[in-house]
Design a binder for these strands. Structure first.
Lengths: 235, 235
DNA sequence: GCGTAACTCTGCACACCGTGCAGTGATATA
DNA sequence: TATATCACTGCACGGTGTGCAGAGTTACGC
């Protein structure tokens, strides 16, 4: 056993406080000082547990992914091994993939600004690897060969994270009341084009109703389904 | 004409300095103070041009998107209008979509940490709208009906941005030399699982070579192609 | 049993951040 | 020419991540 006094906190306690802060006050409120004071100790004491704020954020990502629970591993196709995957295996794999995508989105949108966490580093923790492994299994159960499964697994993660990115970008803007003036400044900045009316873009105007629903679960599901169509489709 | 002294700077000059900073020192270096000093004036003077740092960032997004140049509008299918789109129109639409996706990615990856820009607010500037309109046109040229085109356009943007997100997350980590210790802390944080060897995930291990190429243009193109398969496919 | 090394945690400090506010000087209009 | 309006400066405030020195606690080798 190592010398020195015992630690007064567990990493789990720290992460819980961090997530409380994230949910209550948003991503910007997750500061070293904020978390530390929430735990009743000095900011620098936190550096005993995590070598940097970034490491803290990465720990949060893992903590989140630990709650993913990818379900049973692809035992269904373990029987059929190298044989041609039956259509039942394909359907099961696809169902599991959609469920994973939805669950992942749910986890990430549940905490405002979770995207900032993911951008704190690559997804290479054990739980992230577990997710990747499950995705690979599912895609192979759906009939893909190994290398394509790897690409497909990455593509699916890309889609989910991109979805979160655009969603949170829009969510941020809603909290800001100064829409018009901000936009005016921003567009004036480009020089040439003044602020253009929506009517200038006829197609965009006619799809306004659809665009308003872009962040809904239904349209997220639609997008994932189309992506899966392309990924595990005939070609 | 309004009273008061003339402005000494144009918005374009400000944005140029901001982009220089972005490319040279990364997203974190794009600070109000940094940009201001690069222009030879006081931080608060910048607030004459932009009401907030966020407005500056949004201006940068528009500046970037202005260089997108979506090419000629879908004049090819304007002739055939409501008639069934010929397979030539489909191919042309698809080609244009892929080109747009690649160009967008190129623009965003060209500047390190451009994702932070996009997350500064929704993509609702005139140039973003122009992009959206072009995407809608192309998807309709490829045979989609209006509402599906809207969903597809959003899905494609989601994919491109997600791709950038994961890419920049990995790029950030490469600049950090303290890999092992950071990771150790992060994974210890989850409590249960210690740092697990790659061998624990057999499929991930076998796809390591493929995963190493995830951020390449080739695999980005592969993903977009699969997405387009699903979006404009037979179903 | 005791020194010693290792460890946690505090206090202070630094450089930086976004931005509000008051003041100064230039400028076009009445 | 007086005045309102603008660009811009200087100062200040409260916040950020984190490096460094020291104080106190603990387990191990002698």
């Amino acid at each position: 056993m190592r010398p020195g006094p015992r630690r007064s906190l567990t990493h789990a306690e720290i992460l819980d406080v961090a997530f409380d802060l994230l949910e209550a006050k948003g991503f910007a409120a997750v500061s070293v000082r904020g978390v530390a004071s929430g735990l009743g100790l000095t900011p620098t004491a936190l550096y005993t547990y995590y070598p940097s704020k970034n490491a803290l954020l990465r720990g949060m990502v893992e903590h989140l992914l630990a709650r993913l629970d990818p379900g049973e591993t692809g035992a269904t196709d373990a029987a059929g091994e190298a044989g041609a995957p039956g259509s039942a295996g394909v359907a099961a794999g696809r169902t599991r993939l959609l469920a994973l995508a939805l669950r992942l989105r749910e986890l990430l949108t549940g905490h405002a600004g979770a995207l900032g966490l993911i951008m704190s580093g690559p997804l290479d923790g054990p739980n992230a690897m577990r997710l990747n492994e499950t995705l690979l299994e599912s895609f192979m159960a759906a009939g893909l060969e190994l290398d394509d499964a790897a690409r497909a697994a990455y593509a699916l993660q890309v889609y989910v994270l991109g979805s979160i990115a655009l969603e949170s970008a829009e969510a941020d803007a809603e909290s800001e009341p100064a829409d018009a003036s901000d936009r005016a400044f921003a567009t004036e900045a480009t020089g040439a084009t003044l602020w253009t009316d929506l009517a200038t873009f006829p197609l965009s105007e006619r799809t306004e109703a659809v665009a308003a629903q872009h962040n809904s679960t239904a349209q997220f599901t639609w997008g994932v389904q189309r992506l899966l169509d392309g990924l595990i489709g005939v070609r």
